[in-house]
Design a binder for these strands. Sequence first.
DNA 1: ACAAAACTGAACTGTATAGTTTAATTGCGG
DNA 2: CCGCAATTAAACTATACAGTTCAGTTTTGT
Lengths: 229, 229
Amino acid sequence: MSQTEALSQAGMDRADPTPKQRDIAEAATRLFMAQGYAAVSMDAIARAAGVSKATLYAYFASKDQLFANLIGTACSRSGAHSVLPTEEELDLRTTLRALADRALRFLLEPQSLAIYRVVVAESVRFPELGRAFFERIAESSRQNLAAWLKKQMDAGNLLPRDPVIAAQQFISLLRTHLYTRAVLGVDPPPSEDEIEATVTAAVETFFRAYAPESPAPATERRSESALEP
Amino acid sequence: MSQTEALSQAGMDRADPTPKQRDIAEAATRLFMAQGYAAVSMDAIARAAGVSKATLYAYFASKDQLFANLIGTACSRSGAHSVLPTEEELDLRTTLRALADRALRFLLEPQSLAIYRVVVAESVRFPELGRAFFERIAESSRQNLAAWLKKQMDAGNLLPRDPVIAAQQFISLLRTHLYTRAVLGVDPPPSEDEIEATVTAAVETFFRAYAPESPAPATERRSESALEP
DNA sequence: ACAAAACTGAACTGTATAGTTTAATTGCGG
DNA sequence: CCGCAATTAAACTATACAGTTCAGTTTTGT
């Protein structure tokens, strides 16, 4: 079994996951996300799953396959969470703000950060994981948001621009230094204030760039961090 | 020697690097960046450096220390490259575009991507590396750019807003899907057209958000990727 | 030239780990 | 109650690797 095949085969053997299989998958996913591929031994996985090593190998052919399988699945699950607004009776700016808030909090979830870290770390040795993350999370969320933005553009609520680029930029405006700090685990962890400030700044800038008219609201300066000792 | 001390001590023993020490450092840096911490053995490093294992251990106390040392140094070197414009007689938009172009190309360099990958991968086990990357690369470039943007704001060339947030958003607008794709090694590698399109879109959006007046130039739609099968 | 220092190659220790095997045990349907 | 399949614990194989040691060789400073 080559590493490259492991993932494509992953979706196939999901017909009827035995309870043991679920135990193994959950324990292994948790360990892999917390510590990465190399730092987790198959003995540790068996122990954490409350299962013998023989059983582990009865369900999963190798460590590579187990890893690719689980992280690929984690990407799918994570990417399935749509972050788009369901009802949108309100002001567009308010809707965008709520959307940005949910999206940033999703990005900052320990689960999301762990997936990102482990995929970045192993994307060289497991290229299919890089592709899975990119397609099932990054690309899919971008396309979903683009479709929604396009509706807003068509309705005249936003300037008519390439909606894919707009979506991309909206997401990028949320993945700022606060996100980088969280990815790298640099203290302190994101505070409520920082999250809100980042959301506000992102929506503000996005709106100034994509709002159809320019009422130029007089916004006072804010500083999310630094500058003051 | 604890892992945590390794980095802080790193800068100290740099007084006079022996040629052998340089050989080791270069070989090890190259290997660590290409394959990550766990996948590189000390034997492989010694072999690649053309040095015996005893010599390796004469210069570096442990694999942990070697790794933290080298990647920390790589962060410093990488962060030292300023990306700011030296002369700025031209139109601000043109200057910004050149700046964005250089910054994005820097972000997409194999070297930059390798440092980012390895730091993200090991920031859990080597927290000081996460901090080093964040402070010496992310934070420093943000502050440099913020200072430059502040001058532009003070000169009336940009709307007076928090320059740190503006800098952060400018950089974020460059770290879009193209960058994510490169980080994850997803094919195809960034093309010249994609780089230019991303730069153009970023500058466009930044300018619409931060330009003092709104001449609202009629820009036609562009699509960097996707949407077409 | 000579002595000290740096360096080498190779063997060695101890440990960790992927994956296998086996004999004994448990659970379950008929 | 029997027998079959799943499971277990533990021992086992084979390998890889961090780090050490040492006898011998090369380099270097004086």
